[in-house]
């Protein structure tokens, strides 16, 4: 009990420190600095309607490449961790009911479609590669939950994932060789609100979407496979 109180006091001190720090930044007040530049220049410089996307992909594209790498490493870590341990314990997942099964069949293609829509319109509307990819992975999750025997073909998913990552790097290198800096915009900006606008953002987000989708699906596959991954684990 004393322990809890002591740590409670510690937490209060930490939070008080953050609160004191935050008191310099009043809520709801305009304190933009770089943000101003991005807002003013996004349309002329990048041709994208979604400023957040232009910041993630255009101004801070290198960062996002790192983020994709982190995601990749995490997926790799999960896979390695799972295939390191012995998959002895078998545990049957509950049989799902009829409604889930049929509902999944109906909804699954639409989920994929929505995911694709979201990552292809990342530069125009809210969303982008990460969100769309996560949505796609959710579709696969649904498939796993509904159908006991689902098992994604890992080889193909790895291929898609690799291609997605490669797209990003190749576009970056194209920028390096054609414009002199990594991830420089090598494509025309197009007209605002067109699907084919925003320069390199569209291909990059398509790559990221595919990559994230397949990666998160792989993570789900790793986590779900207890019964199913006997054969997948066997080849390891």
């Amino acid at each position: 009990m004393i322990r809890k109180i002591v740590y409670g006091v510690f937490i209060l001190i930490i939070i008080a420190a953050i609160a004191i720090f935050m008191s310099n930044y009043k809520f709801g007040v305009d304190k933009m600095d770089v943000g101003k530049y991005y807002l003013d220049n996004t349309v002329p410089q990048t041709g994208a309607a979604n400023v957040v996307t232009s910041v993630t992909l255009f101004y801070r594209g290198f960062d996002t490449l790192g983020e994709v790498t982190v995601l990749f490493t995490a997926a790799l870590g999960v896979a390695v961790l799972y295939f390191m341990g012995e998959n002895k314990r078998k545990q049957k997942l509950q049989e799902s009911n009829f409604v889930t099964k049929i509902g999944t069949r109906v909804v699954f293609p639409f989920i994929l479609l929505t995911g694709a829509y979201i990552f292809m319109h990342g530069h125009l509307t809210p969303g982008g590669g990460f969100q769309g990819g996560a949505l796609i992975a959710t579709g696969f999750l649904l498939l796993y939950l509904a159908y006991e025997e689902t098992s994604i073909d890992r080889k193909k998913f790895y291929l898609v994932e690799g291609l997605g990552g490669l797209t990003y790097v190749i576009i970056g290198l194209l920028g390096f060789f054609m414009k002199g800096s990594f991830l420089a915009n090598v494509l025309p900006n197009g007209t605002l609100f067109d699907l084919l606008s925003g320069g390199i953002m569209l291909p990059i987000y398509i790559g990221v979407g595919l990559k994230v989708g397949s990666e998160l699906s792989n993570i789900i596959d790793d986590l779900m496979c207890e019964v199913k991954c006997e054969e997948a684990g066997g080849e390891e």
Partner: peptide
């Protein structure tokens, strides 16, 4: 974890007292 928290607390205290 407690080591981490204690160190964080010390830094916070320094920040508050410094302020």
């Amino acid at each position: 974890v407690s080591l981490g928290i204690i160190i964080l607390t010390i830094f916070s205290l320094i920040y508050i007292i410094g302020g």
